[in-house]
Simulated scan of single mutants.
Amino acid sequence: MTPTLMFDLTGPLALSGWVLLAATPLAPRIALPLGGVAIPLLLSVAYAVSAALWLPGAPGGFDSLANVMTLFTQPGPTMTGWVHYLAFDLLVGAWQVRDARARGVPHLAVVPCLFLTLMLGPVGLLSYLALRTLWTRKVVFA
């Protein structure tokens, strides 16, 4: 497995998970288990494989900004970091969908938060938490 091959496989896999999360109301029995559990688990396996293959002995580290920059100058460690983002952001998106369903937040209101989570991770999480707070307190959407 090369970093390029892993990139070519994991990107479309993650994107399919996001599409499934966005489409959850259309096929709830399939979309959420697949997009919110199975695909994040596959990405987590890819992360574990990537970390085992490319982090040991890689130059750099996590103890300073300079070392992080050195670590991510190599394709393998950079791919490892990328799969980390893919897996965790998708897990956060899946949590948003589940949490919104449990709290009665309309799915269409969550979709923009999912997009922000896909593109900007923590900004999407913050936007969902703000939406959830407003919805559950009936401040704006009553």
Rank of each mutant, 00 (worst) to 15 (best):
M1N: 03
T2Q: 09
T4R: 14
M6H: 03
F7L: 14
L9E: 02
S16A: 15
G17R: 06
V19E: 04
A22T: 14
A23F: 11
P25T: 06
P28E: 02
P28A: 02
I30W: 12
L34G: 07
L41T: 00
S44M: 00
Y47C: 01
A48N: 04
A48Y: 02
V49F: 07
W54Y: 10
L55N: 06
P56Q: 10
G57A: 04
P59D: 06
G61P: 05
G61M: 03
G61W: 07
A66R: 09
A66K: 07
N67S: 15
V68H: 02
G76C: 10
G76R: 01
T78L: 13
M79Y: 00
T80V: 04
V83T: 06
H84C: 06
Y85R: 07
L86C: 03
L91Y: 02
L91M: 06
A94P: 03
A94C: 09
A94F: 09
D99R: 05
A100W: 03
A102T: 12
R103K: 15
G104E: 05
H107G: 07
A109L: 15
V111Q: 10
P112K: 07
P112G: 12
F115P: 07
M119W: 07
L120H: 02
L120F: 08
P122Q: 11
Y128A: 09
L129M: 14
L129Q: 14
A130S: 13
L134D: 12
W135Q: 14
V139G: 12
V140N: 15
